[in-house]
């Protein structure tokens, strides 16, 4: 099976990620031909020690659209689901929807006009 390698967090229970960015990234993913996982709220799953986080964390080359890399890394760790070193985290709190989509999908990003200079951060960075 070609496992989904993209994880999108909706951050559904707070307004810290700009709505336009969340919606724009979801739109980009929806318009793409890519398989992906989307979760309502990584914080909620971490607090619940959701076993799904362990399944997701084991994927090599995973790209996560969520918030600050330090926060995402330790949210997974708190759920006993440490991320792989090559996991890339796209910070929707600081990037635009276009930049986020570009980092997630690269050339497959439907709304991307030009590549962004900002490379997504891996946990090794």
């Amino acid at each position: 099976m070609a496992s989904p390698r993209i994880l999108y967090c909706r951050c559904a229970y707070a307004k810290v990620v700009p709505q336009a960015v969340k919606d724009g990234v979801l739109e980009g993913l929806s318009e793409s031909e890519t398989a992906f996982d989307a979760v309502a709220d990584l914080c909620q799953m971490s607090a619940a020690k959701d076993p799904a986080l362990q399944r997701l964390s084991k994927q090599s080359g995973l790209k996560i659209a969520a918030c600050y890399p330090r926060a995402v890394k330790w949210l997974f760790a708190a759920a006993n689901a440490p991320l792989q070193d090559d996991t890339q985290i796209v910070n929707m709190r600081t990037l635009s929807a276009e930049q986020s989509c570009q980092q997630l999908l690269g050339g497959a990003c439907p709304s991307a006009e030009a590549p962004t200079d900002d490379a997504p951060q891996t946990l090794e960075d």
């Binding site: 909706r10 996982d37 989307a38 309502a40 709220d41 799904a52 399944r55």
Partner: peptide, 24 residues
């Protein structure tokens, strides 16, 4: 997707080259 996520669901989109993965 937006409606489901805002109601707290986890959603996986499966494409033609994929299948429904183990879900616990």
């Amino acid at each position: 997707l937006a409606l489901l996520l805002d109601r707290g669901y986890t959603v996986s989109r499966v494409r033609p080259d994929g299948e429904v993965s183990e879900h616990g």
